[in-house]
Amino acid sequence: MQIPPIIFGTFQYQNQRELSPIVNSAYENGIIGFDTSPSYHTEEFLGAALEELCTSKEIRRQDLFIQDKIDGWQMEEAKGKISCHVETSIAKLHCNYIDALFIHWPFPEYLPETWQAFSDLKKQGKVRLIGLSNVRERHVKKLMEETGIRPDVVQIERHPLRTCKNDVRYFQSEGITVEAYSPVCRMDKRLADSAILKSIAQKYKKSMGQVILRWHIDTGVIPVFMTKKEARIKENVDIFDFSLVPEELKAISELDINYKIFVESACCPGI
């Protein structure tokens, strides 16, 4: 299975009762990709929700795409030998493999060792695709130089206020799939008040959020979105009946001010 064109994120869910109906709604609206992380504390909720979904609708595991991550504390605790943590995640997710596994933040301690372990897990079939989150071009270049192992996918914070133009161009030139979390930047006021976005939305009879998600797709990036509203799920998947023209893509990209919700210097010193 290829990475789906849009993925549902499970950040900030508190329990399975809250998550299960949303997962069900996501699937009913055509979403088959789901994203989690140990630091979200949603692996068990998602695993139970997906198991419930598969049983009720007779869905095969291979018809879903599940993403997970390895966090910095796991890298440090295991000194890079993180296979035990991956096995724990697989058990929580009620499955026997993970479709895409990411290093959540590029903490320099044990990064090469962790990346080698990712490659080994891929060879063993425990993980289908390996990736890096919250990275820039410099992180990926340095890690590939040190290990010779290329990521299949990266996941970064990306939206019209932070287009990551050079990073995205580099990743795509290397054949690395790019995913965007916080793809609509929580509809920051600077986006909600944008005359450009309003005009394009009116033209296509779509919401500004839909236009932004379409901008991601038309620039070759997979949006990973989070919501607790079923109506928002329906809205977010209703973006495959139109495309933006080059002038519109350029106008949206020019909203870039390199604004970041998650300040990387506070979370990770980088390499």
Rank of each mutant, 00 (worst) to 15 (best):
G47K: 10
G47Q: 10
G47W: 08
G47N: 11
A48N: 12
A48V: 05
A48P: 00
A48Q: 15
A48G: 04
A49T: 12
A49V: 08
L50R: 01
L50T: 14
L50Y: 03
L50C: 07
E51M: 13
E51W: 06
E51C: 05
E51V: 01
E51T: 12
E51R: 13
E51D: 15
E51P: 00
E52G: 08
E52F: 07
E52W: 03
L53P: 08
L53C: 08
L53A: 08
C54W: 02
C54N: 07
C54I: 05
T55M: 13
T55Y: 14
T55R: 13
T55S: 15
T55Q: 11
S56G: 04
S56P: 02
K57D: 08
K57S: 14
K57W: 10
E58A: 15
E58F: 07
E58G: 01
E58P: 00
I59H: 10
I59A: 12
I59W: 10
I59S: 11
I59V: 14
I59D: 06
R60L: 14
R60P: 00
R60F: 09
R60D: 14
R61W: 02
R61G: 01
R61V: 10
R61S: 09
Q62D: 15
Q62P: 01
Q62H: 10
D63H: 12
D63V: 05
D63P: 05
D63N: 14
D63R: 10
L64Y: 11
L64P: 07
F65P: 08
I66F: 05
I66S: 05
Q67K: 01
Q67S: 15
Q67R: 06
K69I: 05
K69T: 06
K69V: 11
I70A: 05
I70Y: 04
D71W: 13
D71I: 13
G72C: 12
G72F: 03
G72M: 07
G72P: 08
G72L: 07
G72Y: 05
W73N: 13
W73D: 12
W73V: 03
W73P: 03
W73S: 13
W73A: 12
Q74I: 09
Q74K: 04
Q74A: 12
Q74M: 11
M75L: 14
M75T: 11
M75R: 09
M75W: 05
M75I: 08
M75G: 04
M75S: 12
M75D: 07
E77Y: 12
E77I: 02
A78H: 04
A78G: 00
K79I: 00
K79V: 03
G80W: 02
K81V: 05
K81E: 10
K81A: 12
I82V: 15
I82R: 03
I82W: 06
S83M: 01
S83A: 15
S83I: 13
S83D: 13
S83N: 07
S83H: 14
S83V: 02
C84G: 01
C84Q: 11
H85Q: 06
H85M: 05
V86H: 06
V86R: 00
V86T: 06
V86D: 00
V86W: 03
E87R: 06
E87H: 02
T88M: 03
T88D: 05
S89N: 01
S89M: 09
